[in-house]
Design a protein around this nucleic acid. Structure first.
Lengths: 141, 141
DNA sequence: GGTAATCATTAGCATAGCTAATTAAAGGTG
DNA sequence: CACCTTTAATTAGCTATGCTAATGATTACC
């Protein structure tokens, strides 16, 4: 594969990913949460409990920003703040059952919308896409 | 391909896309623009001139929000507002040479970061990924 | 035991999101 | 043609989200 082809693949993968998530984002309206709150909640639900600093780093925002987002999620009973055992300065943020439920419902809406699109592909195309996704997972790991 | 497999592919594609763009977003620091401004500019540069309403719809925000983002981009000389020919209520928003240049530079940073990751794949994997990207483009169209 | 480093929050500012109201221009309809 | 309605964008005013700087509360070091 020529260097040019690799560049072409990268550019097209970039564009297609943007378009895909832009489309799926429309399914988030029903969640009742803003994009930053939903995204922070998803990091906690799928990444497990973590400190505020870790969560801020994951979301690429500064700690004060994340502290207020967590305030709002706590207020809605979607996450809880627990003093970290062994270091009382630090806080462990954990998803509640409500938080997990809300996130899974939203994720299911997104995935369902995506499945509807995959359903229009030919069988061979779905197989090739599945293979591509496996490789994409390695790229993002 | 079973229905279960299609669902699995959809869920994994969703997650991998989020992870990919989260990673590449780190390259945007050098642009000097906030995420909403950069995203709006990219729609104009790659989608061509359009009205404020069209731009707001593309970005999934309301017109007043987009109006202020365009204010900021005009201030930085990255786009211009042109009264639409034939309807003086409407505004055509066009990218300037500066706007196109800034966006291409940022896009190049992102794509270069992605190429570095693709370079670690085996030749056969890059080919399979390229095939998957072609299909993903059909899905997002 | 005293001082420095670390984790989170508070304070205060600019930006980004919204709805409601306003301005300006087009499009009917009598 | 005058009037009313509709449409496109902006302005006004609110809440939420981003930042840096400063503060409070522990912990680590010496």
């Amino acid at each position: 594969m020529s260097e040019w082809e690799t560049m072409d693949t990268a550019a097209r993968l970039h564009t297609a990913s943007i378009r895909l998530l832009r489309t799926l984002r429309r399914e988030d309206d029903g969640s009742g949460l803003s994009a930053p709150r939903l995204s922070a909640l998803s990091v906690i639900v799928y990444g497990g409990p973590m400190s505020l600093a870790e969560l801020a780093t994951a979301e690429q925002v500064r700690p004060p920003t994340m502290s207020r987002i967590v305030d709002a999620l706590v207020e809605k009973n979607l996450v809880t703040r627990v003093t970290a055992p062994g270091d009382r300065r630090s806080v462990r943020i954990e998803a509640t059952a409500d938080g997990i439920g809300l996130l899974n419902a939203g994720r299911e809406r997104r995935v369902r919308a995506l499945i509807a699109r995959l359903g229009k592909l030919a069988e061979s195309e779905r197989r090739a896409l599945a293979r591509g996704v496996e490789i994409l997972e390695r790229v993002t790991r």
